[in-house]
Design a protein around this nucleic acid. Structure first.
Length: 720
DNA sequence: TTAAGTATGCTTTTT
DNA sequence: GCATACTTAA
């Protein structure tokens, strides 16, 4: 390894500083991933550390895959015994290994967001909760936030004020957890929460992993939440060999519980931290960085950093005004067509938007211009109805207690089982205190002849497949199920044109099982079993399914673009209400996150970047007049290219909502957030658990490090 | 009792 | 503009 030749001095320092806590503040395009790869290789090849003593946590599965590939291809390191993965996949692995120390067995199902909502709705029926008063989506978010903060139902009122709303929420949370436990299921947040609790409560297990993971690296540290912080802290606090890499300017997941303060207070959380800044950008021309810098400096919550570059180019980010969203899509399609005729690859073009719904007009325009494209995100492949149906069959085979999945398949394909029959089964299930699977076999007498026969048939098939699942490959099993119920034929025969793509999706699903098996064998040298497949795809995102071999323009949200780079970037819908999104401009904190989102988008570009906005935009069935994003006005004019009349209609965006005006006032004030660390003259240091009200005089619920919980007005505390 | 047909309501971002 | 929830027919 010739580090000096291949890396700059700061990157070298990241790679060779292997002992003790290291904080790497890495700007966009500064070779962050490169440094992580070299550091891993250095640990193994030069420091002779065993691969199995290293843990690397990435933000996406795709990043993990790339890391593994590059270690193998560039450094000849077998990634088999290395632990590289996302928090969720690493935790899943740990939870499966540590079955005997946990209240669930290792065949657990992983519930996605729609499963979660469905469970919540069921819980409502039992508790007689009105979904209008307690929207399931909102309650799901609240539960998620509790879990990300490691607040179990039993601790709920230590952290939440007691009132009608919170008492009901607590009841729902408790019943929800109970339901999951009966179904041997975990949601995404449980994967993190149970791992953190396991490490916290079980010293024996913690020591095992502390010893195993002697060197820990975390990428995208700015987007970790409290549970993730805790997991890592419990592993690393004794040996302190922890290297975190991140960029506070690219923190865009606070809505998911990520706490930017994890990176901001790293130096306080660990001792003698070595801080390294990577400020040289190897991706974008100077004017792109200047524009991005002039935008991001409007944020108050950040570490100051100066990104610089050697790349010179006369190209500037270009502002483009269009009449409406259709014209916007046509414009982008035309531009890309032109690039294509110049021999440029479609793979180097990306369209970035704030919301998934914006993709539709681009699909139309690209089809019309015969430009091949792939949409990343939106409805995840594995969330599609037809795919989820087949998945539900597989899940039931692995985890018969999984009621969610069982009820999904009981009448798919239609076999004459309706609501009444299911109600009867539920009653029998309750009586016997068993799973549906067992209930059906024990007491069939409740049912009429027709229903009983069709259920008996289903059960016998499931039993056979369950036995099969231990012997035959995943692909064969999946094919058997699909053929048995003629799923493909069913959709192909349908008149609805959408069903054609459903049949294609099912074929694709079969292909996916095959691909999985191949990869699994390559990675581990072992044959996968069904549960391996199910748990892996539960954690897969759309980004992981992008077909790299096919030359296509990519369409994705700005969130999905994190960590990626493209020659030509089209940022569309840069309008007030969309970016910043109308639901994210009520507070300074939210507004700053939106600004970071645009910052991330601009810094993806290597050769060209266009910022598009429209005069009019259709929402549902009405056409609204749109205004350019307020962020566009913040970018220093000298760094961008624009037509003379751009902005002629409004120099300053109108402030539409009273809420935003409030946030302007807030700008000059202190602002509090859940999870923020503070100091009080009398009680010492603590963390904010809840904020009610806003600004300086918000009421804060604070957990102090001496263990006391207090409610204090914001004016009495200092942020640290 | 189930299946098909019709009205409604919701869309920020995702592991 | 699409998926879910309710209504009606068989």
């Amino acid at each position: 390894m010739n580090l000096q030749k291949e890396l700059n001095p700061q990157q070298c320092k990241v790679v060779t500083t292997t002992e003790g806590p290291v904080l790497v503040l890495a700007g966009a395009g500064s070779g962050k991933t490169r440094s992580v790869i070299y550091r891993t290789a250095y640990l193994i090849n030069e420091k002779k550390i065993n691969p199995w003593n290293i843990l690397v946590v990435t933000f996406t599965n795709k990043a993990a895959r790339e890391l593994k590939d590059r270690l193998e291809n560039t450094f000849g390191i077998s990634a088999r015994s290395l632990w590289i993965g996302t928090f969720h996949s690493v935790c899943t692995r740990i939870l499966r290994y540590e079955e005997k120390s946990l209240p669930f067995n290792s065949n657990f199902s992983i519930y996605d967001e729609s499963d979660q909502k469905s469970v919540i709705k069921k819980v409502y029926k039992k508790l007689d909760v009105d979904p209008k008063k307690f929207p399931p989506g909102k309650v799901r978010e609240i539960i998620s936030r509790q879990k990300n903060s490691l607040i179990l139902p039993k601790d709920f009122f230590n952290f939440n004020e007691s009132n009608y709303f919170s008492e009901t929420t607590h009841k729902i949370y408790k019943a929800y957890q109970n339901f999951l436990s009966v179904n041997n299921a975990l949601d995404f947040d449980d994967l993190l929460m149970y791992t953190a609790i396991l490490f916290h409560d079980n010293a024996k297990v913690r020591k095992k992993y502390e010893k195993k993971f002697q060197y820990v690296m975390i990428d995208e540290y700015q987007d970790t939440n409290y549970a993730q912080f805790k997991i890592i802290n419990l592993i690393a606090k004794n040996h302190q060999n922890l290297c975190v890499v991140g960029d506070d300017d690219q923190a865009i997941y606070s809505w998911r519980g990520a706490d930017i303060r994890n990176i901001l207070s790293f130096e306080a959380d660990y001792k003698n931290v070595i801080k390294i800044k990577l400020e040289q950008n190897y991706r974008s021309p100077k004017s792109f960085l200047d524009a991005a810098n002039s935008l991001i400096r409007n944020n108050t919550e950040r570490h100051k950093k100066v990104l610089w570059t050697d790349i010179s180019s006369s190209e500037k980010p270009e502002l483009v005004k269009l009449e409406n969203e259709n014209k916007e899509a046509e414009y982008v399609a035309r531009e890309i067509s032109q690039l294509q005729s110049l021999g440029k690859s479609l793979n180097e073009c990306v369209v970035l938007y704030r919301t998934n719904a914006q993709s539709r007009v681009f699909e139309n325009a690209f089809s019309l211009q015969k430009i091949r494209y792939q949409i990343v995100g939106g409805v995840n492949f594995y969330q599609r109805k037809e795919v989820k149906d087949i998945l539900a069959y597989l899940k039931v085979l692995v985890n018969p207690a999984d009621e969610e999945s069982f009820l999904r398949i009981i009448n798919v394909p239609s076999r004459g089982i309706g609501k009444m029959t299911i109600d009867k089964l539920s009653a029998s299930k309750l009586e016997n205190n068993s799973t549906y699977f067992d209930a059906i076999q024990k007491k069939k007498t409740y049912l009429s002849g027709k229903q009983e026969r069709s259920i008996a048939e289903l059960v016998s098939k499931l039993k056979k497949w369950k036995a099969d699942s231990e012997k035959i490959p995943v692909t064969v099993l999946t094919k058997n199920i699909i053929e048995e119920f003629e799923f493909i034929d069913y959709y192909e025969k349908s008149k609805d044109p959408k069903d054609i793509s459903r049949s294609e999706n099912i074929r694709e699903f079969i292909a996916a099982t095959e691909e999985f098996s191949e990869n699994y064998e390559n990675d581990t040298g072992e044959q996968p079993v069904l549960i391996d497949f199910l748990q892996q795809i539960s954690l897969q995102t759309d980004l992981d399914n992008v077909d790299e071999d096919e030359e296509t323009v990519k369409l994705m949200t700005m969130h999905n673009a994190k960590g990626l780079e493209f020659d030509n970037v089209y940022i569309v819908g840069v309008e007030d209400g969309l970016l910043p999104h109308s639901r994210s401009m009520d507070t300074l904190h939210n507004l700053e996150e939106e600004r970071r989102l645009l910052y991330v988008a601009i810094t993806r570009a290597k050769k060209s970047v266009k910022l598009c906005y429209t005069r009019h935009r259709r929402y549902f069935d009405t056409v609204l007049t749109s205004l350019p994003s307020r962020f566009l006005l913040e970018i220093d004019e000298q760094y961008i290219k624009k037509e003379d009349n751009t902005f002629i209609e409004s120099k300053v965006p109108r402030i539409k909502t009273g809420k935003y005006q409030k946030s302007i006032i807030l700008e000059s004030q202190k602002y509090f957030n859940i999870g923020q660390k503070i100091k009080h003259d009398k009680f010492g240091e603590g963390m904010i658990l809840d904020v009610s009200g806003s600004g300086n005089d918000a009421k804060l619920t604070i957990s102090f490090s001496n263990g006391k919980l207090k409610k204090i007005i914001g004016t009495f505390v200092k942020t640290i």
